[in-house]
């Protein structure tokens, strides 16, 4: 290990609160000791990470309050030293920590609120792609429908929640008192995507549309989607329902490409 490498490892250990001899490498001055000088960096390290997480999880912060949110930040920074080049991605494991560690996992809605905020961030800068219009369906030959499959917009996310997390998140972002937590009998699916104006949209999905969209996202063919919809509709209704879903998705800007 070179002298420079050893010095850098020691510096990082110091920032992480690990045993380190970095102070031996630093000059003290009459006004300020090596330790006090180093402490500027230790303080900045934590402050910068806290600021980044706070920006990413503003509503979670509001829900938890300053004290508990800071407790979360301290725990996260201790457990997750940043390996990200870009600070934008540092906080992606916040939902994982909330779901897995006490006392946060005793309130499962916390992880769901965090997931909503992370989903917004992902939607915001997801890859760009073409967005089809209904006119793109018109020239399809009839035979195409037998193998037709879809490429959906890269920003599209299907989010599944056991609690009324979206209602709580919405109230917090509107600076209103959040409603009481309600646990659903079965998970509710929400669709989130970025539209052609680069605005992030979201809406809840009924199970039939959630199933169809999940199939479409997997690259399943239109006939396979229709078959899946037989769980929800009678055979006569399925083609109309499937076409209606498809038209809605295209109008909302969810579909990037048709393959057949």
């Amino acid at each position: 290990m070179s002298a420079l490498q050893e010095l850098q490892h020691n510096f990082i250990d110091y920032l992480l609160g690990q045993p380190s001899n970095i102070a031996q490498h630093i000059q003290s001055t009459p006004g300020l000791s090596a330790e006090k000088r180093l402490n500027i960096y230790a303080y900045a390290y934590k402050a910068r990470l806290k600021e980044a997480i706070g920006t990413d999880y503003e509503q979670l912060h509001g829900y938890l309050g300053d004290e508990q949110f800071d407790q979360l930040l301290e725990r996260f920074i201790e457990k997750y030293p940043s390996e990200e080049t870009n600070l934008r991605y540092y906080s992606i494991n916040i939902p994982t920590l909330l779901r897995s560690e006490e006392p946060f996992n005793s309130l499962p809605i916390l992880a769901e609120i965090a997931e909503i905020e992370a989903a917004f961030a992902d939607s915001f800068d997801a890859a760009d792609s073409t967005i089809l219009t209904l006119n793109d369906l018109a020239p399809l030959p009839e035979s195409a429908w037998e193998t037709l499959s879809f490429e959906l917009h890269p920003s599209l996310q299907l989010l599944s929640y056991n609690y009324n997390s979206f209602a709580v998140w919405k109230a917090l972002s509107d600076e209103e008192a959040p409603p009481e937590t309600v646990q659903y009998d079965s998970p509710e699916t929400w669709l989130m995507w970025r539209d052609s104006q680069l605005i992030t949209r979201y809406r809840p999905l009924l199970n039939e549309e959630a199933t169809a969209l999940a199939f479409a996202r997997q690259g399943q063919s239109f006939p396979a989607i229709c078959e899946a919809l037989l769980d929800y509709f009678c055979e006569d209704e399925v083609p109309v329902k499937a076409i209606t879903f498809l038209q809605t998705w295209i109008q909302e800007g969810l579909v990037s490409k048709l393959n057949y």
């Binding site: 490498q5 850098q8 490892h9 510096f11 990082i12 250990d13 920032l15 992480l16 960096y41 900045a44 390290y45 910068r48 990470l49 980044a52 030293p81 940043s82 390996e83 990200e84 080049t85 600070l87 540092y90």
Partner: peptide
Amino acid sequence: AHNTNSHDLL
């Protein structure tokens, strides 16, 4: 360095 990004200019 050391598998960690300080996100600071050291």
